[in-house]
Simulated assay, not measured.
Amino acid sequence: MVLSPQDIHNKEFSTKLRGYNIDEVNDFLDQIIKDYQIILEENKDLRSQLSESKDKLSYFNDLKDSLNQSILVAQEAADKVKSNSKKEAEITNREAQKKADDIVKTADEKSTQILEEASKRAKKLAIETDDLKKNTRVFRQRLEVMLESQLAVIKGSDWDHLVEDGPTTTYEDIEKVVGDLDNPTNSDVESENKQGNNADAVESTPTTDDKLQTVVIYPDSQK
Rank of each mutant, 00 (worst) to 15 (best):
D79Q: 13
L115M: 03
E128L: 15
V145E: 00
L46W: 01
S111V: 13
D131H: 11
K86H: 13
D101K: 10
E203A: 05
G179M: 02
D160Y: 07
S58H: 06
K176S: 11
L3H: 04
N26C: 10
T15I: 09
N186E: 10
Q37A: 04
E109F: 12
Q6K: 15
Y218F: 10
Q113H: 10
E117V: 08
N135A: 08
N68I: 01
V25C: 05
E117A: 10
E42M: 09
K80H: 13
S204I: 14
S48R: 10
I127W: 11
Y171E: 09
I114N: 07
S66K: 08
L143G: 06
N43G: 09
N10M: 11
D200I: 02
I103W: 13
D108Q: 11
T185W: 06
K155L: 08
Q49K: 15
N198C: 07
L67T: 13
K134I: 04
I154K: 03
K124D: 02
I71H: 03
K194A: 15
K80R: 15
K87L: 14
E95A: 15
P167G: 05
D79E: 14
E148C: 07
A78M: 08
G156R: 01
A100E: 14
A107N: 14
N93T: 12
K80I: 11
I217W: 09
K82T: 11
E12N: 08
S204H: 11
T92A: 15
V163Q: 08
T129H: 03
A118D: 08
V81Q: 13
L50Y: 12
K98T: 12
Y218M: 14
Q6F: 11
L40M: 06
P219T: 02
E95M: 12
E52C: 06
R140P: 04
V73R: 00
A107L: 14
D55H: 04
K34F: 06
T106L: 15
S111F: 12
V73P: 00
Y171I: 13
V2W: 10
G19I: 01
R121F: 10
V216C: 04
A126M: 11
V25P: 02
N10I: 03
F60I: 08
N21R: 08
P206Y: 07
S191Y: 01
T207N: 03
E41F: 01
D101F: 02
M1E: 00
R18Y: 10
Y36K: 01
